[in-house]
């Protein structure tokens, strides 16, 4: 299993109907790495996430997860293999309680990885514990965001896809969110996190990938990005 990327996208092209959204997107993620996917609103971050999850089927190119070609596999199978997806719109089940939401995400433990139990997750997100029997619709935005992450962790993912977790939540919660991601990193869980906020990305991530209009414009460390301020100015809103 040495030298196999956790996740590898090779020249992925995705469409909505006839609109060509992703152009030859390629990158890879190694074990234990936290990678940020940066770009402005509409750059194609969500579409990239969806193309990995096969919620959008790439018309061209391949996605490999743990060395296996998952392009065109059904989404549920991709999730079963260990790709955990936290969508941007959160999409918690508002009619279900917190505990029930967690139940939906539950998958068997995987060899050699920690098993996320409800207790561990409640330690990680103490707010959820207090409100465990509340329905999703009764939660605040920040609580909903935590619930989506906890729900996905219940599936004991080998790689986590986080789509703009800091979007639309209070600054205090954003800080909490950053701490959480760092904790996950400490557990050795690789994360692909999409962000518009460079500051937040720099705190949690090891590496930055920048996309604009569905094309990859940069892939490297934050130091390298620092050295090229013109890239930052061109593709990120400051």
């Amino acid at each position: 299993m040495t030298n196999i990327n956790m996740l590898k996208l090779n020249a992925v092209n995705s469409f909505y109907g006839k609109a060509h959204i992703l152009n030859d997107i390629s990158f890879s993620i190694e074990a234990g790495e936290v990678v940020s996917l940066l770009g402005r609103n509409g750059a194609g971050k969500t579409t990239t996430m969806k193309s990995i999850m096969q919620l959008v089927k790439p018309k061209d190119g391949t996605v490999h997860f743990l060395g296996k070609d998952i392009t065109a596999s059904p989404t549920h199978r991709v999730a079963k293999m260990g790709l955990g997806y936290v969508p941007e719109e959160r999409r918690i089940f508002t009619d279900l309680t917190i505990l029930e939401n967690l139940e939906v995400g539950k998958q068997p433990a995987r060899d050699g990885l920690i098993e996320w139990t409800i207790d561990i997750l409640f330690d990680l997100f103490p707010n959820l514990k207090e409100r465990r029997n509340n329905r999703g619709k009764e939660l605040s935005g920040g609580e909903q965001q935590m619930l989506t992450i906890a729900r996905t962790l219940m599936g004991n993912p080998k790689l986590l896809l986080l789509d703009e977790p800091s979007e639309g939540i209070a600054p205090v919660i954003v800080e909490q969110m950053a701490e959480t991601i760092l904790k996950l990193k400490k557990e050795g869980l690789p994360v692909l996190i999409s962000e518009q906020n460079l500051h937040f990305a720099r705190i949690v991530a090891d590496r930055a990938i920048i996309i604009e209009s569905g094309s990859r414009k940069f892939d490297g460390s934050f130091e390298e990005l620092e050295a090229q301020p013109e890239i930052r100015d061109a593709y990120l809103s400051v």
Binding site: M53, L55, P74, T75, H76, A79, K80, Y85, P87, R91, F93, T94, D95, L96, E100, N101, V104, G105, Q107, R151, T152, G155
Partner: peptide, 13 residues
């Protein structure tokens, strides 16, 4: 859950 959002249920495996 599927009554509400079946795609998300699929994305959870």
């Amino acid at each position: 859950a599927a009554t509400q959002d079946r795609e998300m249920v699929g994305a959870l495996g």
